[in-house]
Design a protein around this nucleic acid. Structure first.
Length: 575
RNA sequence: GGGCGUGUAGCAUAGCCUGGAUAAUGCACUGGCCUCCUAAGCCAGGGACCGCGGGUUCGAAUCCUGCCGCGCCCGCCA
C-alpha cells in the first residue's frame, strides 16, 4: 500500500508537527501493516512515548483526534494498543482502480534508464544444456524481462564456453569422424564423450589434440573452420532449448569466451601497470585483500597460468573492460550459482582496484542454490549424469499434456498441445522462481504440476477462468475499460488491494533481484480472485455491479498475465 | 581452520535488509460447499518454545554475539 502511504503522509505531517513530533521521528514508523486484518498501513507510537512522556495509546489517540476528518478521502483511521491504523476506503480504492484500468502499464512506473548487462545461461559448446543451466536461464530471463519493463536498456549476454583446451580434442575428433563438411544431427553428448574417451585412451590422439589447441589459439584458419562448425551446431541446440523454454536469448546475445580472447594480454598489461600483478609459483596472479587459503596464506586470483594459458578470471576481467568501454553499461548482473561467490567477489575487487570499473558502475553477483532431487541430493539422471534440459522440458510438457487430457477432454489436440507447453514450461519456471533463489530447491514433478497451491498452473487457472467469464458474457475486454468501478464487498476490496499492489512488489523484486517477491504477490492476487470468484457473481449481477466486477476481472487478468510474463510464463486463455 | 549461504507446524516455503500487534502461505490432515461465470476451485478447523544460549530494546523470527546442524567454496577447470 505504497500509494496510500504517500497520500497519507503529507496530511499527517501537519498534525505531527503540531504535536511536536519531528519528521525523522515518525516517517519510518508509518509503514505497511504487518497484519492486513488490522489495517493497510500502520504507525506504532511506542517509540514516541519516552519523548512525549505519554502512553503510546494516548499518543495514537491524540494523532487520531488531530487528523479528524482530514483523511476521509483516503482511509478510515483507528487506534488500538498504541497503533494508529489506516485502512484504505472504497472511495480511494475506486479512484485508484479507475486510473489503473486505463493504464497500459498497470501502475508500473518507468525507472531512470540505465544500461544493464545481464549475464546468464552460459552453456558449453559441444555439450548438451543440462539441469545445471536451468536456474541461471530461468532467473536471468525473468530479471531481463522485469528490468526491460521498468524501462532499462537491458543487454542480454550469454557467456558460452566456446574456447579452451577441450576444443583441441573436439576438433580432432570432428576431423576423425567426419571427413566432409557437415555435422548435422550429431548427438553432442555422445560426440563429447567419445572425444574425451579417445583423448584418455589414445596417446596419438591426445598429442594431436594438444597441437590443435595451439593451432586454434593462433587462429589457424582450418582449426577455426572446424571450431566454428562446432559452435554453430551447438547454437542450433541452444536455440532449440531456448525456444522451447520461451527464453529471450538468441544468437545476438552470444558473448562467448572466444570474444574476449584477444583482450586477455591487455588485461595482463593493465594489471601490471596498476602494480597489482605478482608472480607466484610460475603463475601471474593478483592478491586481493582479505582472502586467505586453507593455510592462511593470501589467496591469489590467477590471471595467467604457469603454462602461459589464461583462465576464466582473466576472461571475466576482459569482459568487464569490454562492457564498460564498448557496451557503455552501468550495471552488471551475473546470474551464476552461489558456489562462485568468492570468485566474483575477488574479480570485482580486482576490477575496481585496477580501475576497470569506477564507482558509478555496479557489479552484482546474483547467486542461486542447487537444484535438488526428491532424494535430497543434487538432481541427477538415473545413470548419475546431468539431466539434459531438453529431456526435462519435454517430460514437463508430456506430463502436463496427460493431466490436461484428463481434466478437460473437450479441448482439441492442437489446443491441448499448446496449453500443455505453457503449463509444463510454466510449472518448471515457477517452481524455480517462487522461492528465494538463495535456497536450494527441490525439483518435484508432483508438486510443480499438482495444479494446487503456489504453482504456475494455479495462477494460470485463475487467469483462464477470467477469460472464460468474458467469453461467456460475450464481452470484449477493451469495452470494460470505460466502466465505473465501485468496490464494496469485502472480497472486492481484497481483490482491489491485491491488484493495486502489483507495482510495489515488482519494484521490490527488482531491487533485490528476487523474482520470488513478484511471484508471491501474484499468488496472493490469484487467491484473492479465487475468493472473489466464489462469492461475487459477475454475469448474473445488476448492470452497475456487473460492469464494475467485469472491470475488476479485467484488471486481475491483465495483472496476472503481465506478472507471469515478467516471470517468463505464458497465461493461456483456456485450460 | 577460514569464507559465503542456510535453519520458521509432518513436509515445502514467505516474512529478516528497514524490529511493532494473535508469526503468514501452500501441500498433507479433518469437516463442509457443484440445479449457480471452469470443483484444476472455495469455506471452516487442528497443527510452530521461528536451530540453541546470551545481549540490545518499551518491544526480537527480524539487530548484535557465542555455539550447533546442513550446503557450497577456499591455487593454476569454468
Amino acid at each position: 500500500m505504497r500509494e496510500l502511504l504517500l497520500s497519507v503522509r503529507p496530511i499527517l505531517s501537519s498534525v505531527m508537527t503540531n504535536l511536536g513530533i519531528k519528521e525523522e521521528e515518525w516517517f519510518d514508523l508509518l509503514d505497511s501493516s504487518t497484519d492486513s486484518s488490522f489495517a493497510d498501513i500502520a504507525m506504532p507510537c511506542h517509540s514516541l512515548s519516552k519523548k512525549l512522556k505519554k502512553s503510546p495509546m494516548q499518543i495514537a489517540d491524540e494523532i487520531l483526534e488531530g487528523v479528524g476528518e482530514d483523511l476521509c478521502d483516503f482511509c478510515t483511521l483507528s487506534s488500538i494498543n498504541g497503533f494508529l491504523n489506516f485502512s484504505a476506503n472504497s472511495k480511494w480504492l475506486n479512484e485508484c482502480l479507475q486510473n489503473h484500468i486505463l493504464d497500459q502499464r498497470l501502475g508500473v512506473s518507468l525507472d531512470e534508464q540505465r544500461t544493464i548487462v545481464v549475464d546468464y545461461s552460459s552453456p558449453n559448446v559441444a555439450k548438451h544444456m543440462h539441469v545445471g543451466h536451468l536456474r541461471s536461464t530461468v532467473i536471468g530471463d525473468s530479471l531481463v524481462r522485469m528490468l526491460t519493463y521498468k524501462g532499462h536498456n537491458v543487454v542480454r549476454e550469454n557467456h558460452i564456453g566456446d574456447w579452451g583446451t577441450p576444443f583441441g580434442m573436439l576438433i580432432e575428433h570432428l576431423i576423425d569422424v567426419n571427413g566432409n563438411d557437415t555435422i548435422n544431427n550429431v548427438d553432442l553428448a555422445i560426440f563429447y564423450r567419445d572425444a574425451r574417451e579417445k583423448f584418455d585412451s589414445n596417446v596419438d590422439f591426445a598429442d594431436r589434440s594438444r597441437e590443435r589447441v595451439v593451432k586454434m589459439q593462433s587462429n589457424d584458419p582450418d582449426s577455426i573452420y572446424y571450431w566454428q562448425m562446432l559452435v554453430d551446431q551447438s547454437l542450433v541446440h541452444f536455440n532449440e532449448v531456448y525456444q522451447m523454454m520461451g527464453v529471450l536469448l538468441n544468437n545476438n546475445d552470444i558473448a562467448g569466451e572466444s570474444k574476449y580472447e584477444s583482450l586477455l594480454s591487455e588485461v595482463v598489461e593493465k594489471l601490471e601497470e596498476a602494480g597489482l600483478l605478482h608472480e607466484s609459483q610460475g603463475a601471474q596472479v593478483v592478491f586481493p585483500e582479505g582472502w586467505y587459503n586453507r593455510e592462511g596464506n593470501p589467496l591469489p586470483l590467477i590471471i595467467r597460468k604457469a603454462d602461459g594459458g589464461y583462465n576464466y578470471a582473466t576472461s571475466d576481467l576482459a569482459c568487464i573492460i569490454d562492457r564498460v568501454q564498448n557496451v557503455g553499461a552501468t550495471d552488471f548482473l551475473y546470474v551464476v550459482g552461489a558456489e562462485q561467490s568468492q570468485h566474483f567477489a575477488m574479480v570485482f575487487e580486482v576490477a575496481r582496484k585496477a580501475g576497470f570499473m569506477n564507482k558509478k558502475i555496479t557489479a552484482t553477483h546474483v547467486p542461486f542454490g542447487l537444484v535438488m532431487g526428491t532424494d535430497g541430493k543434487k538432481l541427477a539422471s538415473r545413470t548419475g549424469g546431468a539431466v539434459h534440459l531438453k529431456d526435462l522440458l519435454m517430460e514437463a510438457i508430456e506430463r502436463a499434456n496427460s493431466i490436461i487430457a484428463e481434466k478437460n477432454p473437450s479441448l482439441s489436440n492442437d489446443e491441448r498441445n499448446e496449453i500443455a507447453r505453457m503449463l509444463g514450461i510454466g510449472a518448471i519456471k515457477y517452481a524455480d522462481l517462487s522461492t528465494d533463489r538463495n535456497n536450494n530447491y527441490t525439483f518435484d514433478w508432483e508438486k510443480m504440476l499438482s495444479f494446487d497451491g503456489n504453482t504456475a498452473p494455479y495462477l494460470q487457472y485463475a487467469h483462464a477462468r477470467i477469460c472464460s467469464i468474458f467469453s461467456k458474457a460475450n464481452i470484449d475486454r477493451k469495452d470494460v475499460q470505460r466502466a465505473i468501478i465501485s468496490v464494496s464487498d469485502e472480497r472486492e476490496i481484497s481483490l482491489a488491494k491485491a491488484i493495486l499492489s502489483f507495482p510495489e512488489y515488482l519494484d521490490k523484486a527488482i531491487v533485490s533481484n528476487s523474482p520470488h517477491k513478484l511471484a508471491t504477490q501474484l499468488h496472493s492476487l490469484a487467491q484473492a480472485f479465487g475468493t472473489f470468484y466464489e462469492f461475487c457473481p459477475v454475469i448474473s449481477s445488476e448492470t452497475d455491479i456487473f460492469e464494475s466486477r467485469l472491470a475488476l476481472c479485467d484488471l486481475t487478468a491483465r495483472t496476472l498475465e503481465q506478472g507471469l510474463n515478467l516471470l517468463g510464463i505464458e497465461a493461456p486463455k483456456k485450460m
